[in-house]
Amino acid sequence: MPGTVPAPGPESAGDASPHGSKVRVENVAVRLGGNQILDGISLEVAPHEFVCIIGTSGGGKTTLLRSVAGLLPLSGGSVHLDGEPVVAPTPRIAMVFQHFGLFPWKTVRTNVEYGLRVQGRVADDTGERVDRLLRIMNLAHCADHYPHQLSGGMKQRVGIARALAVEPELLLLDEPFSAVDAITRELLQNEVLELWERSADTTGMLITHDIDEAILMADRVVVIAGPPGRIALEVPVDIPRPRSARSVRTHPGYPQLRDTLWNALQTGETP
């Protein structure tokens, strides 16, 4: 069973009852190529909660996220979104990948519009919605550029804008900031948090290797140990929002929280 380290202050969003869960992962197991990647993962995410999942390489973090997205078959257990089983990709879930996944023959604008067009959701306000996202993500000046004309950070902004354009109920992010420089990474973190906070209907799950990133962005941090992947620890982040990298590092609860997560990553065990 995963351990939970209590934190002072208000009850965490992650303490919602099963009946109030947006996402419910129940005893999920995944085998790929004869290897057991996940073994008995159970996790609940409350509506509009932002959960970060951290762990060492090969522990099954990305496999868990792809399972939640309906992209991988399960060898055991189940995934539910609002009580409905997720057995295949659904327009209610959007995923941002580590390596952009942009169409090189499409412009920034048409890449962002892509999900809406595939879902047949192009409407009179589509252009306005796309323009708003381009402005928020600082992409308006390059709306007609192609991916080869963009920096890594700009490409990732396009991928994030494309996911948000469909207004997903569940936003899944698989290490979306790992391929950019430190300054761009912090800017992107702030932009994603701002967009998530504005959208009360969107729940977020982020995979990261970075403990500080997880503390900055999460309502709750889940540590995955493996292989095979299992939940070693769940910790609520009791630091007020809105947050910045500076406000997190100067918060009195930060050192103990970071040490707890670091120790769980090193040992793969619940303290």
Rank of each mutant, 00 (worst) to 15 (best):
D259S: 12
R185M: 12
R241I: 06
D238F: 02
E186W: 01
I207A: 07
P242S: 04
A161K: 02
G40E: 08
E191A: 11
L133M: 03
R92Y: 02
A245S: 03
P255R: 08
T267W: 06
P85N: 09
R121F: 09
P252K: 03
I215F: 02
E128T: 13
G152S: 09
E11H: 03
R117S: 15
P242T: 11
T110M: 00
P168R: 03
T63I: 07
P255E: 04
M1W: 06
E128K: 14
T184F: 13
S67N: 01
S67T: 13
G101I: 08
E197G: 05
S42T: 12
P227V: 02
G152P: 09
A46W: 03
A165G: 04
C52V: 12
E186Y: 04
E11C: 00
P8V: 10
I224L: 14
F103S: 00
P228R: 09
D124K: 11
V23L: 15
H141D: 14
R109H: 10
V28R: 00
V158N: 01
S75N: 10
R66N: 13
A200K: 15
D174K: 01
G9A: 05
L265G: 08
R121S: 05
M154T: 04
A143V: 11
I41L: 01
A69K: 00
G204H: 01
E44K: 12
A7R: 12
H99D: 15
E194A: 15
L38M: 08
I53S: 00
T4L: 14
V51M: 10
A123N: 10
V45H: 10
T270K: 02
